[in-house]
Amino acid sequence: MLEIASVNSFYGKAHVLSDLSFTVQRGQVAALLGRNGAGKSTTMKSIMQLVVPRSGQVRFMGHDLVGLAPHRVAKMGLGYVPEDRRIFTDLTVLENLEVGRQPSREGTVTWTRDMLFDLFPNLAERRNNRGKEMSGGEQQMLTIARTLMGNPSFVLLDEPSEGIAPVIVEQMARVILQLKSEGLTVLLSEQNLHFARAVADVAVIIEGGAQKFHGTLAELNAQPEIRDAYLSV
């Protein structure tokens, strides 16, 4: 469904992704693993075209995304949940959801506010609160809910478990599994191998912006030397 082929991305003159390639199949939950600074967030942004790759291809359902405006990428059914959440702090929960709202799309779930409030009960209670009045965990839920309002068929989750309480991390894991059961495809980036083990089918490990491992989690578990080399445990 998503194919990254020899992508090279830069921040100014800094070469962040070098010849990165991997694929994600429809219906999979894929975990993009790597240390701090390995290029996980840049990969996500390079898919969304928030960072435009200098070379290579990002194919989504057969179309090359490179060079498209981010709103066009979103319109094709890719939902992006940024690492630093980036909720609109002056807007209420309902207004944040409104910004994300897009028409329904063939072949994927059409989310309503009520469905999202079922998924994230905390948000229902705080629907008229402003973004800045919410805790980190609640903001994380809101940013996911906001992206789901666009009815994506593929969700990019950048470090969903970062900086939130363990009980909420568990809730995040349940949400991701539910998205999978609804037929959505998910690519999530993680430093936390335990979280990835709980939700992901396949893992892609990157280091220095290049792919070092691509396989199922069972295969990864069978090769502890890879884990030790590229992931801090």
């Binding site: 405006a69 709103h71 207004e95 409104e98 910004v99 709202r101």
Partner: peptide, 24 residues
């Protein structure tokens, strides 16, 4: 209105508004 919500959202973070599918 929706337009107003988008305007206020863009005032804070217009790139994110674009990533959510709104043509800036």
């Amino acid at each position: 209105t929706r337009v107003g919500v988008l305007v206020r959202a863009a005032t804070q973070d217009r790139e994110m508004v674009g990533a959510l599918g709104v043509n800036q």
